[in-house]
Simulated assay, not measured.
Amino acid sequence: MVRDDREHWDAKHRALGTPIPQPPDALRGQTDLLPGRGRALDVACGRGTVAVWLAGRGLDVVAVDVSPAGLAAGAALATTEQPPGRIRWVEADLDGGFPTEDDAYDVVVCQRFRVPELYPALAAAVAPGGLLVVTVLSEVGDTGGRFRAAPGELAQAFGELEIVMHHEAAGEAHLLARRPS
């Protein structure tokens, strides 16, 4: 499976233009919730637009993805946008589990990658006082499908955290949550 995923995402990333750093969807309009420094984890980072944006905000980032082409695009963007060394790029198949050896982050982002089996690992990766930022495709306001979250899925999955914002509409579900200090 990993080879097929890698080839699919490599082809997709190569076909796209130059990425632009941007905040994760769930955090737009609420960037004041981010710490000014610390460590961040960007899960399924794709071409690194969020990872580079986080690094630009002063965070040291671990960016994980299955696609070498996506990681290369992110690394190229990071050299033009950031001082080197703020982002560590990690190639890993997340279907096989959580690859990072680090135990907790001040910010954990997972945008447009839904694997409910990884929800406990995502929650566990959030440091005390840290922020979880998740956006997935949703059945709410859409026709549904295998990659879409059921109504309330994120709020239920991350209920041990303090939910700051949860919104579902137009085929997307967004969640911001904090681990109590």
Results as ranks from 00 to 15, higher is better:
84 P>G: 14
99 P>H: 05
95 D>A: 15
81 E>M: 11
105 Y>H: 13
73 A>W: 06
105 Y>K: 08
87 I>T: 08
85 G>Y: 03
92 A>V: 11
69 A>G: 04
111 Q>F: 00
107 V>S: 00
113 F>S: 09
107 V>Q: 00
98 F>T: 00
67 S>T: 08
99 P>I: 00
110 C>F: 03
81 E>C: 12
88 R>F: 03
99 P>F: 02
72 A>D: 15
71 L>T: 10
90 V>K: 09
75 A>T: 10
68 P>T: 14
95 D>T: 13
66 V>L: 06
85 G>I: 09
88 R>Q: 14
90 V>I: 12
88 R>E: 15
99 P>G: 01
103 D>S: 13
96 G>D: 15
101 E>R: 13
82 Q>L: 15
76 A>H: 07
93 D>G: 09
91 E>K: 09
102 D>G: 11
75 A>E: 15
96 G>F: 06
65 D>F: 09
89 W>H: 11
108 V>H: 04
76 A>P: 03
112 R>G: 03
105 Y>R: 07
81 E>A: 14
89 W>F: 04
96 G>W: 08
101 E>F: 01
86 R>S: 13
106 D>W: 01
68 P>A: 12
79 T>F: 01
85 G>Q: 06
73 A>C: 11
81 E>K: 10
69 A>W: 10
91 E>D: 08
108 V>E: 02
92 A>D: 10
108 V>M: 05
72 A>F: 11
81 E>P: 00
106 D>A: 09
79 T>P: 01
65 D>H: 12
87 I>A: 03
76 A>V: 04
92 A>W: 12
